[in-house]
């Protein structure tokens, strides 16, 4: 079984769900979903903390003065689009078309990178123009921890996907790496799910006041 797992899969072959064709793949699939269940609680704890402390801005600017919606809107659009591009990647994986899968994964990575760049720019602005820092108030601590945890997830996801792409660039899709790609795409979607709540709860609700 194990050597066969490394046999390259080409378009037109079976199976149509390469990510779940082996027991290892099935285990990864299930284990990763469970992990995401745990991550839900992790982010809920961070959201809860943020909601409890969001008005503790002391002398610093309150949320409605601090946040600008233009940048957040652009970031949101970028991340939502990157979710779609990783759907395209998995679509091509199911058709066993490795080259196209890599291409769409690559686009996902580029979008993720630009999201991360904008986030760093945003943080830089807050720190240097608004005096809104990690240590300036409980609001600052809670904001950077919540949004920063999400940013760290994005950064880790990028490292992960790039490693996968480089490692498998020459040998193509097989039953051994298909579950890895699939799980990485699940992770990426989850990051997007968290962001939907961040832009709603942190930025939009912050703006409403």
């Amino acid at each position: 079984m194990s050597a066969e797992e490394l046999k390259q899969l080409k378009p037109g072959q079976s199976p149509h769900e390469p990510e779940k064709a082996t027991l290892e793949g099935k285990n990864k699939f299930l284990g990763f979903w469970f992990f995401l269940g745990g991550e839900t609680v992790l982010f809920a704890s961070l959201f809860g903390t943020y909601l409890a402390l969001k008005d503790s801005n002391l002398d610093g600017k309150p949320a409605e003065e601090l946040f600008g919606l233009e940048l957040v809107f652009i970031m949101t659009m970028i991340l939502l689009t990157s979710s779609l591009t990783s759907v395209y990647a998995i679509y091509h994986m199911k058709n066993l078309d490795f080259q196209k899968m890599q291409l769409w994964m690559g686009i996902t990575v580029l979008l993720g990178l630009s999201f991360l760049g904008l986030e760093i720019f945003e943080f830089y602005e807050y720190v240097h123009h608004d005096g809104h820092t990690f240590t300036s108030s409980a609001f600052g601590s809670a904001f950077y921890t919540l949004v920063g945890f999400h940013g760290a997830h994005v950064a880790f996801g990028l490292l992960w996907i790039v490693t996968l792409m480089v490692r498998n660039a020459r040998r193509g899709l097989n039953l051994y790496n298909a579950p890895k790609y699939y799980v990485a795409s699940l992770y990426w979607h989850f990051i997007d799910v968290v962001w939907v709540f961040i832009f709603t709860v942190v930025y939009l609700m912050g703006k409403v006041g």
Binding site: L42, A138, S141
Partner: peptide, 27 residues
């Protein structure tokens, strides 16, 4: 995961100057 977050907040407070549990800073 709740413990993980709690410990992170405690770590940030004690080691990196965050204010989650410091009432004088709004915590």
């Amino acid at each position: 995961p709740a413990l993980t977050v709690g410990l992170f907040l405690m770590m940030f407070d004690r080691l990196f100057g965050a204010n989650f549990f410091d009432p004088s800073m709004g915590g």
